[in-house]
């Protein structure tokens, strides 16, 4: 799906955000390994129709802001053996993001 016109983004690059840890039913684009984790907004990609609704033949509106979120690998995996500077970037829709609490 290409970009749509939609609401202004709630979060800005550099902001710390937490991925909601709610359980997901059915089609879900927030992978389990980032749920409940805190990361940093790298890019605001723009707004796109919500694939979690499109998957069920709904229009996916209003469009959701999509963000590139950067996580530290050592935050995601307690037993991570690579460099402490290694990072993982995931595209996450706004309806999965909360302001960071820490």
């Amino acid at each position: 799906m290409t970009m749509q016109t939609g609401a202004a983004p709630k979060f800005q690059p550099g902001e710390r955000v937490r991925v909601d840890s709610r359980p997901a039913l059915g089609h879900c684009r927030a992978p389990l390994f980032i749920r409940g984790q805190t990361g940093t907004v790298v890019t605001v990609h723009g707004t796109f129709r919500d694939p979690e609704r499109l998957a069920y033949h709904q229009p996916g509106l209003p469009p959701q802001n999509l963000y590139k979120i950067r996580f530290k690998q050592t935050d995601l995996w307690l037993d991570y053996t690579g460099s402490p500077n290694d990072e993982l970037e995931v595209d996450v829709y706004e309806n999965w993001l909360l302001p960071a609490t820490n």
Binding site: M3, P31, E89
Partner: peptide
């Protein structure tokens, strides 16, 4: 830096 293409 790993990029997980989860979306659009």
């Amino acid at each position: 830096r790993v990029h997980d293409s989860t979306a659009d």
